[in-house]
Amino acid sequence: MRVFWCLVFLAVPILAVLSCIYAEDYGLWFPGEAETLLGKQIDDLFYMINIIVTVTFIGSNAGLCYVIWRASGKQEEGGKAWFCHGVHSLEVIWSIVPACILMFISLYQLDVWMQFRVRTNYPTEAAAKPVAEVTARQFEWRIRYPAPGKDLQLQPQPDDLYTVNDLHVPVNQPVMIQLRTIDVQHSFFVPDLRVKQDAIPGQVIPIWFNVLHNGEYDLTCAELCGWGHYKMRGRVVAEPVEDFQAYLVKLQAEQSYDGVANEDSPELAQSGEE
């Protein structure tokens, strides 16, 4: 039985490490490379912590398994246990070393956090011209763009453009969105971009990110907002600036379409506006 139980406890670190190594093959790892600059830094930070943690984990488990193996053999060897109230030098070592490592991790990552959240570090261009306002509500994302060529205002404007669950942003440049909610708390979560920000009732919270590649990214809600929390599926579409502009124009055309436009080129319906 002694061997059996030691193996049970030894199996924990072995299976844990193995399952993490093979996890990626089964889609149990990040849903893909981070698609933003900050996201890449977050991933790097994750991998750095992962190394430190894995070493600690394996080391501590090796220690644990070794001591239970030896201590459970003592019965047959005979003799009393080691009468020892502790080893001062060890206590000092295993307080100071982890303290330094933890302090290192905390200070090392501050930079990424400051870039992401601290106002003065926001990319100036993007912060001056937010691309859209995203308003969460039960259970959808409402998106408000300024009309082409105009800037987003805090108050809705008559020519603002609206969509639901479909946020388009220009690729390869920092973009800022203003996040709000009109009812309960929600959270704007785009796993591929490693972006998450709660939408707090009564507050307008800016978020910025820089998408690196064209593509569609899943947008989900990460804060319980009621029975339909799971349904808040949206997408973020990153596309070249020209396409983005064209998209806004198309949106404007659709929105101000009066039903009598030329059949061949419905987008001309916008003519009255500009």
Partner: peptide, 23 residues
């Protein structure tokens, strides 16, 4: 981060407790 420190110290001390014991 700092609160992980006393937690770590405790884990090490538990392992230390079994160390050289007779279980």
């Amino acid at each position: 981060m700092m609160i992980a420190l006393p937690s770590a110290v405790k884990v090490f001390n538990w392992i230390g407790t079994i160390w050289g014991g007779r279980i």
